[in-house]
């Protein structure tokens, strides 16, 4: 299996894990004041959409044929990984200020987001080498 296939599968697996992570490691299930969802709910609703897009783009790595398209795809995956890291930050949407279930979820999603970003970077590097003709 070549390097590109390995990276494609890695990106797809990481994205799928990130997509279902809030079900496996749930965020806060309480309501603020018994009425309204807390900040972490909105952060993880946004995370779901972003990870869904990451899954779709990771899947498309298997059908793209040109190095340019694969490079662009890797770039978008890198940016999506960055967004996954940014959303739980207090200056973005944020999570609960006190320690809670959402902090545990955020710990794992930070690891996953970092790995996805790294995978995107490796895809860019690999396909920039290919498009320059250095490797086949």
């Amino acid at each position: 299996m070549n390097q590109y296939k390995i990276l494609s599968w890695t990106a797809l697996l990481i994205s799928l894990v990130l997509l279902i992570l809030p079900r496996i490691v749930p965020i806060c299930t309480g309501l603020a004041g018994g009425v309204q969802p807390m900040q972490c709910h909105y952060a993880y609703q946004a995370e779901f959409i972003v990870t869904l897009l990451a899954v779709i783009l990771s899947g498309s790595l298997f059908v793209l044929t040109t190095s340019e398209a694969r490079l662009l795809n890797g770039l978008v995956i890198l940016l999506l990984g960055g967004i996954i890291l940014i959303l739980p930050q207090p200056w973005a949407i944020g999570i609960c200020p006190e320690a809670g279930a959402c902090h545990k979820t955020t710990f794992f999603i930070t690891i996953g987001g970092g790995l996805l970003t790294l995978t995107g970077a490796l895809l860019i590097w690999l396909n920039s080498r290919k498009s320059r003709g250095e490797i086949q």
């Binding site: 809030p22 079900r23 806060c28 779901f48």
Partner: peptide, 12 residues
């Protein structure tokens, strides 16, 4: 996509 909200008034 997420665990359902608790219906009890317990603090989180």
């Amino acid at each position: 996509n997420r665990a359902p909200f608790r219906q009890t008034p317990n603090q989180e």
